[in-house]
């Protein structure tokens, strides 16, 4: 039971990441291959606020969302003027840089050793340390992110970002400052990823740079691809599939050392196969 709860909590965290990345890639057409870096910013910001400043988890989370959101808007502002391939490449470089900073700015981040002793959430007398309670908290936050994403995509704003995906220049000609929209969605997606980051940091109690490299960004991309672009529910399906999949590997008996690499290989394979045979993902709403 506790194992299932553990999986479910990871599902929740990665579903938030998938939904937020889908807003950028699936809805707006911004191929952002650095969501792990945004995730990391949230995780580290949350960790630092909660440990070094001893702030309450929820306050730390709000501040971490702010930090991630502002940084996301900034990188959105700098990079989203660029054409497709350049944007993607710049995002990969950015991921590489963020990890580099996390490893090297030891006075702030404690370098490769990471930050430990991150407390579990609590609100006055109420503690969320117990796995069931933490999972429920994760679920609630997922629900909020889901609702926010639905609100955004169903609004006129959502229509505009989809138009930007379809034909940005035509969207401009009709009077829309598309850069501002791209900055806004980059910031909102980043803030959501920040939530996931703080959740992860608190759940494991520990963060270190190695969990946030480009491969992790590719994993989150796979969640979006497998579930289906431009479909919020799809990202839930994708997260479910890709969080459960490695667990099936356990039963296949791969030794622990290579399990992580096998997982990576399977994500890569999933990306290849879906692009070749089912680019619209499992849900299949948006003909990519």
């Amino acid at each position: 039971m506790s194992y299932l709860l553990h999986l479910a909590t990871f599902f929740g965290i990665y579903a938030i990441l998938g939904v937020s990345l889908n807003l950028l890639i699936g809805y707006t057409g911004l191929v952002w291959i650095a969501h792990a870096a945004t995730f990391a910013v949230g995780a580290y910001a949350g960790a630092l606020f909660a440990t070094k400043l001893a702030l309450n988890f929820f306050l730390a989370m709000l501040l971490a969302m702010l930090v991630a959101g502002i940084l996301g808007s900034l990188t959105g502002w700098i990079f989203s003027r660029l054409g497709g391939d350049y944007y993607m490449l710049a995002s990969v470089s950015w991921n590489y840089i963020v990890v580099s900073v996390l490893i090297n700015w030891e006075s702030l981040t404690n370098g490769p050793l990471g930050i430990s002793g991150i407390p579990k959430p609590s609100l006055g007398e109420l503690s969320f340390a117990e796995p069931t309670k933490f999972f429920l908290l994760t679920l609630v936050l997922l629900g909020i992110v889901y609702a926010a994403a639905r609100f955004i995509t169903n609004s006129s704003f959502g229509r505009v970002i989809k138009a930007i995906r379809e034909d940005e220049q035509a969207a401009k000609v009709f009077g829309y400052n598309t850069l501002m929209y791209k900055v806004a969605i980059s910031g909102m997606g980043a803030a959501m990823a920040g939530i996931a980051g703080v959740l992860l940091a608190s759940y494991i109690g520990f963060v270190d740079p190695s969990s946030f490299d480009v491969m992790e960004s590719i994993f989150i991309l796979a969640i979006v691809v497998v579930g289906g672009f431009a479909n919020i529910r799809g990202s839930l399906v994708g997260a479910l599939a890709l969080v459960l999949l490695p667990e099936l590997l356990r039963f296949a008996g791969f030794p622990a050392e290579i399990a992580a690499h096998v997982r990576l290989g399977l994500y890569g394979l999933a990306l290849i196969l879906f692009m070749l045979y089912r680019p619209q993902g499992i849900i299949g709403e948006y003909k990519f």
Binding site: R159, F174, A184
Partner: peptide
């Protein structure tokens, strides 16, 4: 806007241009 419905293509011309107004 190919992957948008006909109605959305027209609504696009009508709605508020500002980010907050659109949201």
């Amino acid at each position: 806007f190919e992957q948008l419905p006909v109605l959305d293509n027209i609504l696009f011309a009508l709605t508020d241009r500002g980010v907050f107004g659109a949201l």
